[in-house]
Amino acid sequence: MAEPNKPRYAQPGDKVLPGKPVTVNRYGPGARLNHWITASSLILLALSGLALFTPALFFLTGLFGGGQNTRALHPWFGVVLFISFFVFFFQLWKANLPERVDWVWLRKLRDVVGGHEENLPELGKYNAGQKIVFWAMAGLILVLIGSGVVIWEQYFSAYFTIPQMRVAVLVHSIAAVLIICVFIMHVYAAIWTRGTLRAMTRGTVTGGWAWRHHRKWLRELAGQRKAGPAE
């Protein structure tokens, strides 16, 4: 099992603060700022991309000052997303590695959707759903930036052949549809699981939230507090 001094789930900055209710620090200010940069660029990308995906949504170009501006801005939003997400990625990837308990959790998806936490195993900082969102985002963003460069007409049209661009534009649109679906799932799960959003606004969750959804993580943080150096 894990060495007593090496945290298995807790990440730098995670901390339990006693009180009524207990408060748990989950995300620091840097992570939260970066999350909202990622979120904003993904939303802007979805809006500008959907405008060019189907004529029914071309009116969305109005949000960006017309079709020419939408065409010019969309790839730059993508660059912002790519950088901000991968800053995030290198902070979070270890906590998102799959574990045996993730399979147990996934097999009990009916209890997950039904909100029957009492039937689910105790979890670390992330559940399997969060891990799937994390890895899907990472993979899809790589596919999107790669295919996006191939079809970035303004700067890269000279470096790729037309048959390559045709493959890229098809791959880009399929990956975009998938990432929008993952995005909807991510946002909805955060809203449906009450008490989650504050992790990305104030940076904290209540002890009860951590007990209910990420009990192993909470146990570890509580244990650290007992064993930790005097304050």
Binding site: V22, G115, E117, W192, R194, T206, G207, W211, R212, L218
Partner: peptide, 22 residues
Amino acid sequence: HGVFARANRVSHEDEAHAEQLV
């Protein structure tokens, strides 16, 4: 799902358990 399913809320029991744990 948001309209018809019950939201996943943290219970008073959950908060009490967390306080006990800490």
